[in-house]
Amino acid sequence: MLLVIASFAGTALSDAHQSASGWAYPPACCHGDIEHGECQAIPERAVTEHGGGGWSIVLNPGDHRKVTHRNRYFVPYGSEIPSGDSDYHICLHPTQEHENCFFVPPGAI
């Protein structure tokens, strides 16, 4: 019985940190699941390279499930994480004002 419970719990945890395209977000970045977690893909138009040595991200309502008003984020070069697909992704935790992890598609780094 304990093996069944442990097996089910492990499956649930591994599913909890996946993007819509199926690659896994690091557990330290995403708390929740594909419908309620704080990580998801964001529009390419929201991301620009900042002349000051990093990435400028502007999210509006609808760009990410947690965003209810316009938010700006700055991620220094070297702090980004390669994404597992061709999209940009961001994890907002503990609130929409806090960027926890930022993922950049291959070739953009």
Rank of each mutant, 00 (worst) to 15 (best):
F8E: 06
I109T: 14
I81S: 07
Q18D: 13
P76M: 02
H64P: 08
N71V: 13
V104A: 11
P26L: 02
Q96W: 12
H17Y: 08
Y88G: 00
H36V: 08
N60H: 12
G62V: 03
P94H: 04
Y73P: 04
G32K: 06
S79W: 12
I109H: 13
P27H: 03
I42S: 06
D33K: 11
A6R: 02
A16L: 08
Y88E: 00
V4K: 03
A28D: 14
H93W: 13
P106R: 03
G37D: 10
I81F: 08
T68F: 10
S14F: 11
E99W: 00
L13E: 15
R45K: 14
F8D: 03
R65A: 09
A9G: 00
P61W: 00
I42T: 13
A9M: 01
G52S: 14
N100T: 08
T11D: 08
P43Q: 09
G62K: 09
Y77V: 04
T48M: 07
S21G: 03
I90E: 12
A28S: 15
V58Y: 09
Q40R: 01
I42P: 13
I42Q: 09
H50D: 15
I90Q: 11
C91Y: 01
A16V: 06
W23C: 02
R70I: 05
E35S: 04
I81A: 02
H50G: 11
F103Q: 04
Q96E: 15
N60I: 08
A108D: 14
H89S: 00
G10A: 08
G53E: 04
H93E: 12
L2A: 06
D87F: 04
C29Y: 13
P43V: 00
P94G: 01
E35N: 06
H98Y: 11
A20H: 06
L92I: 02
A6F: 11
H50F: 07
H69K: 15
G84N: 10
I90N: 07
G54F: 01
F103L: 09
W55M: 01
A20V: 01
P106K: 03
G22Y: 11
A12I: 08
S79I: 04
A46V: 03
Y25S: 07
H36L: 02
N100L: 06
I90R: 09
N100V: 01
S79N: 15
E99K: 12
D15W: 10
A24F: 10
Y25A: 00
L3E: 13
F8T: 07
R65Q: 10
G51Q: 15
E49L: 03
I34T: 09
G84P: 15
E97M: 05
L3S: 11
I81M: 12
A6E: 09
Y77R: 12
T95C: 05
P106Y: 13
I42G: 09
D33V: 02
G53W: 04
G78S: 09
S19V: 06
D87Y: 11
N71F: 02
H17K: 14
S14V: 12
G32D: 05
P61R: 15
R70P: 14
D15Y: 13
C29E: 10
K66Q: 06
A20E: 14
G37V: 05
D15C: 11
D33P: 11
